[in-house]
């Protein structure tokens, strides 16, 4: 179970301070399939990064499977079973797809195992295995390799940040099947940040994050109508 209490995060730049997360309280039960949605700039990525430990909040706490992880490093959280597929994955010079997947899995993966992960994200496999994860990959390819790395990691909490971005329709439908099947077959908690109604409709629960706060939660039918709510409540509150 993931328990977030009073999570706040403020940044300061030349325009003053800005509250990006504004006292988020959120509990997600183990094994749930949750979709977080909401307007651009609402704070979804920041929330995910705070859970992973990439962003250090000003206040609040995060508990994961009974452990208070608030002051733990990214590495420690990763080893406890938290994983995060980046919205904008980095590129590497000199790291091959099979190597990344092996690092994620924590062991050397065979060609067949790597192929299986790549197939799950709709990548025609053989061609990709020894490709470097560098600027020769398209945005959509990079994004799918990123998702494959999280599948290979097989953590108890998997967070995917806009996995649909840059992906063609065919791969998208392959991807939704993959999310459904991990949900069915593993006990992992899945959190997907998404704007896609198809993904939103797969969720046990939909959480609307706007203006750095959780504004609605519930099933797709109760939350979806609020996505277009006036911007007033999602404007970022001043610190």
């Amino acid at each position: 179970m993931l328990k977030i209490k009073g999570l706040s995060y403020t940044v300061s730049d030349e325009n003053g301070t800005k509250k990006i997360l504004n006292g988020i309280d959120l509990e997600i039960d183990t094994g749930r399939f949750v979709v977080i949605t909401g307007p651009n700039g609402g704070g979804k990525t920041t929330l995910a990064k705070a859970i992973m430990g990439i962003v250090t909040p000003d206040s609040g706490s995060i508990e994961f499977d009974g452990t208070d992880v608030t002051s733990l490093s990214v590495t420690e959280r990763a080893r406890l079973g938290i994983s995060y597929a980046f919205q904008h994955p980095p590129r590497f010079k000199g790291l091959q797809v099979t190597e990344l997947l092996s690092i994620a899995a924590g062991k050397k993966l065979s060609t067949n195992e790597c192929c299986a992960y790549l197939t799950k994200v709709g990548l025609c496999t053989e061609d990709y295995l020894d490709r470097d994860i560098d600027s020769s990959l398209s945005g959509g390819e990079l994004k799918r390799i990123e998702i494959a790395s999280i599948l290979a990691r097989n953590s108890s909490l998997m967070i995917f940040d806009e996995p649909e971005a840059g992906i063609d329709l065919w791969s998208f439908s392959r991807l939704t099947q993959t999310f459904e099947s991990i949900h069915r077959k593993t006990g992992s908690t899945i959190v997907i940040i998404s704007h896609q109604e198809r993904i939103i409709r797969l969720a046990d629960e939909v959480i609307l994050v706007a203006g750095g706060a959780v504004t609605h939660r519930g099933n797709a039918d109760t939350v979806l109508p609020h996505i277009g709510d006036p911007i007033s409540y999602c404007s970022v509150k001043e610190a």
Binding site: A78, E99, R153
Partner: peptide
Amino acid sequence: DQLLKLMTLGMSEQEAEERIISGFL
């Protein structure tokens, strides 16, 4: 973000750095 990505896969910061350098060279 390269370091962070490898750390989210369970590597320490130093392991991530070494991995990135050895791949680069």
